[in-house]
């Protein structure tokens, strides 16, 4: 796996992400600055980490989505390359048009920083092959704007095409408004692009990968990617 982590001013989860990629794949990712116009040659996974790019000014992710490196990320995605956006990274992917919809202010207006339970809807994607369909994983969230919304037609298409990959759920996998912390429509926590090679998700799988600091539920996502890209190479 040859991963590149894109860094924007105000991003603060890039080191967690780089550490996890190193831990799981054995290789340090390239750190790519927002003003760069090219990804390192041979990059097979682009990761847009979490944080507060440009201080969340204007709208979360809006300014980062229009920075020079995003043209290279778009070109990578258009060729079928894998892109993972976490938290602010998901917001940036939506603002850049790589994923549909918008992440609005959380329904109850509070910043949420806690562990949540996610139902993994599918295991037949490059991002979730390390899990079983229907499996429930526990990972942290930390966001003020994670309330996913899109027009009815888009939601129907996402659901119809099986592109909702993660949903907020109860510990036993029930979809229940009490466990949908930010009020996202259909409890959507993560979605895939139409070609299935771009994943955006609000929770942080990169923070639950080591038994020494708690749980390891996030590891499956990265192990699955290593497996996928190892096979492709």
């Amino acid at each position: 796996m040859k991963a590149a982590v894109v860094v924007f001013p105000g991003i603060n989860r890039e080191r967690d992400m780089a550490r996890t990629l190193k831990l799981v794949s054995g290789k340090d990712p390239a750190m790519v600055w927002h003003a760069d116009t090219e990804l390192p040659a041979g990059t097979d996974l682009v990761v847009i980490p979490g944080g507060f790019s440009y201080g969340d000014y204007l709208r979360c992710g809006a300014i980062a989505a229009r920075s020079p490196i995003m043209d290279a990320v778009r070109a990578h995605a258009a060729k079928g390359g894998l892109v993972l956006g976490v938290c602010n990274g998901f917001q940036i992917l939506c603002e850049s048009g790589l994923l549909p919809g918008v992440l609005m202010r959380n329904g109850q207006l509070r910043f949420i920083c806690r562990d949540v339970y996610l139902k993994v809807e599918r295991s037949d994607t490059p991002f979730t092959r390390g899990y079983n369909a229907g499996q429930v994983i526990r990972v942290p969230v930390a966001h003020g704007e994670g309330n996913y919304i899109a027009d009815g037609e888009t939601i129907a298409r996402l659901e119809g095409e099986g592109r909702v990959i993660f949903r907020y759920a109860s510990p036993d996998g029930m979809i229940d408004p009490n466990w949908n912390h930010n009020g996202a429509i259909n409890a959507i926590a993560g979605i895939l692009s139409d070609k299935g090679n771009v994943l955006g998700m609000m929770p942080h799988p990169e923070n639950h990968v080591e038994a020494s600091i708690g749980r390891t539920d996030g590891r499956g996502l990265f192990a699955g990617l290593v497996d996928q890209l190892g096979q492709a190479a």
């Binding site: 204007l58 603002e95 919809g101 918008v102 609005m104 027009d151």
Partner: peptide
């Protein structure tokens, strides 16, 4: 169109 508004919402 390019920046100030997100015309999705």
């Amino acid at each position: 169109d390019k920046l100030l508004a997100n015309t999705v919402i």
